[in-house]
Each structure stands twice: as structure tokens, then as C-alpha cells.
């Protein structure tokens, strides 16, 4: 864990120097705008009315609460992937990948260091975003502290597993923007952040199951939105897919790193 701690410290030093405040503010605006647009839409277009169909599918008639949880989770996921998934391609761009790969440190603690930094930074952003949601009248609830911790842990694991795989894709392809934006758009549609997945055609719902975030979001929804509590089956699926992605990503990472090194020849 020495490497994880050192990488966490390195990330803190670099981020503080590279983006003193601008990164924090810039990333926070995404969540604030999402919440703000939802609020205006509910007031101006829907006249504060939520259809029975939505309430039935979402498990709640509190649309703003639904959006607050989704926007917060989406920010958590996107920023987590940006930090962890882009760690290696950032090394490639900085010209430090060779120095990293030639060192004997394992990649798991290195990525865990990034994850620790990412989730700490995102926790601050989540706190501010939830504060904004409170101003709009949202009253966040959870079915229990243990449920809440397990649900967030499932989402964090899903983010980590997905980031490891994406990290490999990015360094092999030598690009990040197309990869990350494609994944972010797919998640936004398929994983249940802004509308219940029941609205999707069945084929797309199954496609969403390939994304580890989707099962974790179902767990989040049960605990923070619908009030139905922790769904052990979905928690199990989220853990299984999250660990599966992480394991597959870590096992193939040496190959991806070699391909990345070869691309420079």
C-alpha cells in the first residue's frame, strides 16, 4: 500500500498545482446544471406534476429527489473514471509511462491510489451538489446507514472495474476523448441516472447490464430513491461484474502496456 499512498499524495500535489480551483468548479457545474434544468423543467413544463407511470417505474413521485440522486451518482461515476481510467494515458502523454512501467510497482496499488484521491475529491463535490439540491427543496433519504455504505461501495467498485478496462482501451488506442465520451453517453442512456430503465426497450436494458455501473445504480436507487432497501441480488450482480471488470483489466494490463509502448515505435 506504500505505492497507493505515494500515488494519492502525488495526485494531490499535481492537482492542487494544475487546477487550484478551476477543476473543482468546472466539474461541479455539470451537476448543478443538471439539477437546475430538472428543477426548471418540473416547474415550468410539468407544472410540478409527475405522472403515475413515472412514479410507478421510478418507485417515487419525488422527481427532483430522483434527479438529485442520479446527477450526484453520475458525477461520482464520471469523475471517478476520468481520474482512474485516464491515469495511464496521462502518463503516456506526459512521457512518464516508460519510467512507470520499468519500475517493479504493481498496477493495482497505483490505481487504488488514484481511486482514493478521486473518491475523496468527488466526495467534496457530492457534498456541495447535495447542498444545492437541499436549496431546491430536495430531502435526501436512505433506507439505512449500512445500506447506504454498501450501495456507494458497489458503485465505487463498478467505477474502479470499468476504469481499469477503459484505461487499457485508452492506452492501446492512444486516445481518451472518443472512448470516454462514448462510454459516458452510453451510461447516461442505459444505466438509470436520469430516467427509469424500464422506459428502455428490452434489448437496450440487456445492453445496459454489460456496464457494471447499471447494477450498482439499481442498488443506489433502491436505497436512496425508491426506499425499498438494499437489493441483495442486484448488489451481488454489481459486485460480480465490478470485480470481473477489475480482474480482467488488471490481467490484460501488461499486454496493453506493451502495445502502448510498441505504438511509439
Amino acid at each position: 500500500m506504500v505505492v497507493a499512498w505515494a500515488t494519492l499524495r502525488r495526485s494531490w500535489l499535481v492537482t492542487r498545482r494544475a487546477y487550484p480551483w478551476s477543476y473543482f468548479i468546472g466539474t461541479l457545474l455539470l451537476g448543478v446544471f443538471t439539477m437546475g434544468v430538472a428543477y426548471l423543467g418540473l416547474r415550468a413544463i410539468a407544472g410540478d406534476q409527475v405522472s403515475a407511470e413515472f412514479a410507478g417505474r421510478a418507485g417515487t413521485a419525488d422527481y427532483l429527489g430522483y434527479i438529485a440522486v442520479g446527477a450526484t451518482a453520475y458525477m461520482f461515476v464520471v469523475h471517478g473514471i476520468l481520474w482512474i481510467g485516464k491515469a495511464l494515458i496521462q502518463e503516456q502523454r506526459e512521457g512518464t509511462m516508460g519510467a512507470l512501467v520499468v519500475a517493479p510497482a504493481r498496477r493495482l496499488p497505483y490505481l487504488l491510489g488514484f481511486a482514493a484521491f478521486a473518491f475523496t475529491a468527488v466526495a467534496l463535490e457530492v457534498a456541495v451538489l447535495l447542498g444545492f439540491a437541499l436549496l431546491l427543496g430536495v430531502r435526501p433519504t436512505a433506507t439505512g446507514a449500512v445500506d447506504a455504505v454498501l450501495a456507494v461501495a458497489a458503485l465505487a467498485l463498478a467505477v474502479f472495474g470499468m476504469s481499469v478496462v477503459l484505461s487499457n482501451v485508452m492506452i492501446v488506442a492512444g486516445e481518451a476523448h472518443i472512448t470516454q465520451n462514448t462510454v459516458f453517453q452510453a451510461m447516461a442512456v442505459l444505466s438509470g441516472f436520469t430516467f427509469p430503465r424500464d422506459y428502455l426497450p428490452e434489448a437496450l436494458r440487456w445492453l445496459g447490464e454489460l456496464i457494471p455501473i447499471t447494477a450498482a445504480m439499481d442498488v443506489i436507487r433502491g436505497v436512496f430513491t425508491a426506499g425499498t432497501g438494499l437489493d441483495p441480488a442486484r448488489l451481488g450482480v454489481a459486485a460480480l461484474i465490478g470485480f470481473g471488470y477489475a480482474a480482467a483489466g488488471l490481467l490484460t494490463m501488461p499486454w496493453a502496456e506493451r502495445r502502448a509502448m510498441e505504438r511509439s515505435f
Binding site: V3, A6, A103, A105, Y110
Partner: peptide, 9 residues
């Protein structure tokens, strides 16, 4: 140098 020292344990 400190960071790379950590990577080399």
C-alpha cells in the same frame, strides 16, 4: 525522486 523511490520500494 521520492515518488519513484516508492515505486521501487
Amino acid at each position: 525522486l521520492w515518488y519513484f523511490g516508492q515505486l521501487y520500494d
